Amino acid sequence: MPPMNGKRMAIAVLVAAGLLSPVPAAAQARHDEPVGMRQALEAAVSAGAPGVLVRIDDEHGTWIATRGTADLDTRGAVPREARFRVASVTKSMVAATVLQLVQEGELSLDEPIGRRLPGQIDGGDQITVRELLNHTGGLATYDEAAEFADPEQYGKRSYTPRQLIDEAEGLPSPERGRFSYSNTGYILLGLLVEKVTGHELSEELERRIFRPAGMTRSYLPKTWDGIRGPHATGYYLPTGADPSRPGSLRPITRLNPSFAWAAYGVVSDARDLNRFYQALFGGRLVSQNLLTQMRTGVTTPQAPIFPRYGLGLEAVGLTCGEMWGATGSIPGYETLSFADATGKRRMTLSVNVHRGDPAVAHMLLAAVDALNRYFCGEPYELPGAASKAR
């Protein structure tokens, strides 16, 4: 059995980890700096992130902070405008593209994927576009195949969408109608966009999403293994490695992203991700009706931290309520990007490591704590954790 993919492993250990010990709030903070934010970022570094970057954009302006290092050898600072692989935040952008086609009358959310892509997936005459968007189509996720056990190997290969789908069809299928995270569904959605528009997905994202939202630093690579512009070195922890041993984190900044493509392949930065959710939630990319459907979520096993998943969007359960956006995990980087309902308050956090060990729970809880300190003005606490500790 190959290892659980990084995103699902990280969420699983988060839920099992219990409460992150709150870090003390700063006695005083600048007007534009959320109280306790810097301590939350330092907690993420202490828990295993080489470096961390956070950017906040709202009506008061912009606040950017970094902690840790961009490279474990040179010990340089994380660039304030660092690019990174945003991983599954890509799904929000692909979903918005699909919903634009729905808005234009080119697609229906409830039509079977097999109508446009006959023969691409078993059961395609039953699985709807909506089910692909919210991970209820009963599709295995291809990245759990043995082929994807070692990123230093698969990150050097080129994959076609057909090969990724074939890998998924060799795995046991989850129950249709229940949430089961599947990158395979978004590979199919990428093919759907290309079939309906007659253009490559990267072109449609540029035309429909990046350009209208002002995302001038974002792109979807096909096979090129580098990252344009300033960036931190990305690291990963090999399966079974002891994270406490020096040198256990391996650099993996360069990798052929064809294995991720429409599911989790976009490269961007914190400014652009905040611009994306500002444009999306501000009604500039899809209609209000479709935006409401995007934020109508199915229950996930990751509750209460990530309780619901909509159409390419996921909710994070903070102490002051739910915020919507997405998380992403790919060899080299992990990302959390969320906004309030209007898109006026946005925060993106990036760490330059991908880990699947249980200790990663403390790192990710520190990231959620940082989100909570901005959106809610207080430390994060898992619902029921205080009473459970008592």
Rank of each mutant, 00 (worst) to 15 (best):
G6E: 11
G6Q: 12
A17K: 05
L19H: 14
L20E: 04
V23F: 04
V23S: 14
D32L: 09
E33D: 09
A43P: 05
A44D: 01
V45R: 03
S46D: 12
G48K: 05
I56A: 00
D57P: 02
T74I: 14
V78G: 02
E81S: 09
F84L: 01
V86H: 03
V86A: 12
T90E: 05
T90Q: 06
K91C: 02
A96P: 10
T97Y: 05
T97M: 05
L99G: 04
Q103S: 13
E106H: 13
E106F: 06
P112I: 11
I113C: 13
Q120C: 10
D122I: 07
G124T: 07
D125S: 15
Q126S: 14
Q126I: 06
I127D: 04
I127P: 05
T128S: 14
E131K: 04
N134A: 02
E144C: 02
E152A: 15
E152Y: 12
Y154N: 06
I165R: 09
A168V: 10
A168K: 11
G170P: 03
E175T: 15
E175F: 10
G177E: 04
Y181P: 12
T184K: 12
G185Q: 08
K195Y: 12
T197I: 09
H199E: 14
L201C: 10
E204S: 13
L205W: 13
G214P: 06
R217A: 15
R217P: 01
Y219C: 10
K222W: 13
T223R: 15
W224L: 13
D225F: 14
G226W: 10
G234M: 08
G234W: 06
Y235K: 03
P238K: 06
G240E: 03
S244L: 06
S244M: 09
S248G: 03
L249Y: 11
L249S: 03
A262R: 08
G265L: 10
G265Y: 09
V266S: 04
A270N: 01
A270Y: 00
A270C: 09
R271W: 01
R284H: 09
V286P: 08
L290K: 06
E314W: 00
V316S: 11
G317P: 08
T319R: 15
E322T: 00
T327N: 07
E334S: 14
L336I: 00
A341S: 10
K344I: 02
R345M: 03
R345F: 04
R345S: 08
N352W: 05
H362M: 04
L365P: 10
A366F: 02
V368H: 05
A370T: 00
Y374A: 04
A385G: 12
R390C: 06
